[in-house]
């Protein structure tokens, strides 16, 4: 993906760039809001990483400007103001996801890849398929190798989230946000418990496991 990072903290920006490049993305840096807006308008990016507090032009204003232009590039907002109401503001301004500082780089990477992928025209899917694992979103059924798998509603949403981001890392925080709609981090491994139950249902009786744990990051569903 081609990603524009608008961030005034040089060191932080450098690390983000380095990390994203290592993950195989093309990264441009903009140190302030004005330049960020210029670059966002000039080139076609797959995703934008936008700091909220920027010199010259505020992150949210930048976002509103490009949305006014009709630009639908997915935007991940970064901010030190890690509160839920700030998040709501950011999303209302046209952001696709919001990440509070401090964040783990893996979290940032997972989220950017998730929103970058969202821009694919897959909005109206009714079926998800990863390897021999199939999910019917309308009938709410799951099959693996044509065997029906019975899931609880929450397990279904958990699997749906993993399947929509198949091949990519989904962090625990992302799962907590997208499956449970919680915006805080529990102190315990409560998500792991749910994931391991899901794993028991979709992987246990099959030869090749699909649901992998990614150390220090989260989970990945992969063939």
């Amino acid at each position: 993906m081609r990603i524009l990072v608008v961030e005034d903290d040089e060191v932080a920006a450098d690390y983000v760039r380095k990390g994203l490049m290592e993950a195989g993305h093309v990264v441009d840096l903009a140190p302030d809001g004005d330049l960020g807006l210029e670059m966002a308008r000039a080139a076609d990016y797959d995703a934008l990483i936008l700091d909220r507090m920027l010199p010259k032009l505020d992150g949210l204003e930048l976002l509103e400007s490009i949305r006014d232009d009709g630009d639908t590039t997915p935007v991940l907002i970064l901010s030190a103001l890690g509160e839920v109401d700030q998040k709501v503001e950011g999303l209302r301004a046209g952001g696709d996801d919001y990440l509070a500082k401090p964040y783990a780089f893996t979290e940032l990477l997972a989220r950017v890849e998730a929103i970058g992928r969202r821009s694919d025209p897959t909005a109206a899917v009714t079926k998800l398929k990863v390897g021999d694992l199939e999910m019917d979103l309308l009938a709410r059924t799951v099959k693996r190798a044509d065997q029906n798998i019975l899931l609880q509603p929450r397990e279904f949403r958990l699997l749906e989230c993993l399947m929509r981001n198949a091949g990519q890392v989904v962090t625990r925080t992302m799962l907590l946000e997208k499956v449970w709609d919680y915006h805080f981090d529990p102190q315990t491994n409560v998500i792991d418990v749910h994931v391991s139950r899901l794993r028991g249902k979709i992987d246990k009786e099959f030869e090749s496991p699909m649901l992998h744990t990614v150390r220090g990051a989260g989970y990945r569903l992969q063939v």
């Binding site: 903290d9 932080a12 690390y15 990390g19 290592e22 500082k101 401090p102 783990a104 220090g216």
Partner: peptide, 20 residues
């Protein structure tokens, strides 16, 4: 807490990228 967050974030990123 506020001022230590940025260096800590960098520290974490550094550790993580080196670990990988």
């Amino acid at each position: 807490a506020h001022d230590l967050r940025s260096p800590l974030t960098r520290l974490r990123t550094r550790l993580e990228s080196t670990a990988t």
